[in-house]
Amino acid sequence: MKNVIETKNLCKTYEGVIPIHAVNDVDLQIQDDEFTAIVGPSGSGKSTLLNLIGGLDHPTSGEVIVNGHDLSEFSESKLIDYRLYHIGFVFQAYNLIPVLTVRENIEFIMMLQKRKKEDIKNRIHELLEEVDLLDKINKRPSELSGGQQQRVAVARALATKPEFVLADEPTANLDSKSASNLLDTMERLNKEESITFIFSTHDQRVIDRARRVVTLEDGKIISDVQK
């Protein structure tokens, strides 16, 4: 097992009248195939940590090292490529493109990667089969339930064959059945396709399924439990 992601003395401070240390001296190693939940109360720095790992935000100090590369050395365009080729994002509010169908939402991100048409077609089928939404391939997001939309978002996140998926509160808007289905899908993909999943969550259902739980409080890791 190798470290996919490593943070060293990672800090993120939001300046203001009272500076807020959203992430405070975090050292964390995430290895291949992990199914990790970063938990903590609201404002503990979960999402900020995920954003720093995803290259969406810049740390105040410290390093985010992905596959041996320090993200702070990446230019803006290299960061975009990093996000496009190495990370899959799943957001709390699904964030599918409303004017595109399920198929097109997944196809779109692969077209950004300039993948071959045949390859794209096969991957869409494969992913929709995985998330059990092949029958909804031509539906628009507005025609799907919240759980179905989040499963499409997972399929989209996986379409680029990322090394790891960052999921920010993926079950927050889902009922128990949908959340359970989604977690089943993610767990299966983690095991069968060896995709690393990192969740930020305070949903107990996710915490129960995670094989590792990292707890943050006031931006610091207060516990790191391997199950």
Binding site: L84, A93, N95, I97, L112
Partner: peptide
């Protein structure tokens, strides 16, 4: 938000 999401998932500006 949607545009931000597109940039986040890897669409260049």
């Amino acid at each position: 938000r949607e545009i931000g999401m597109l940039v986040a998932i890897g669409m260049s500006k």
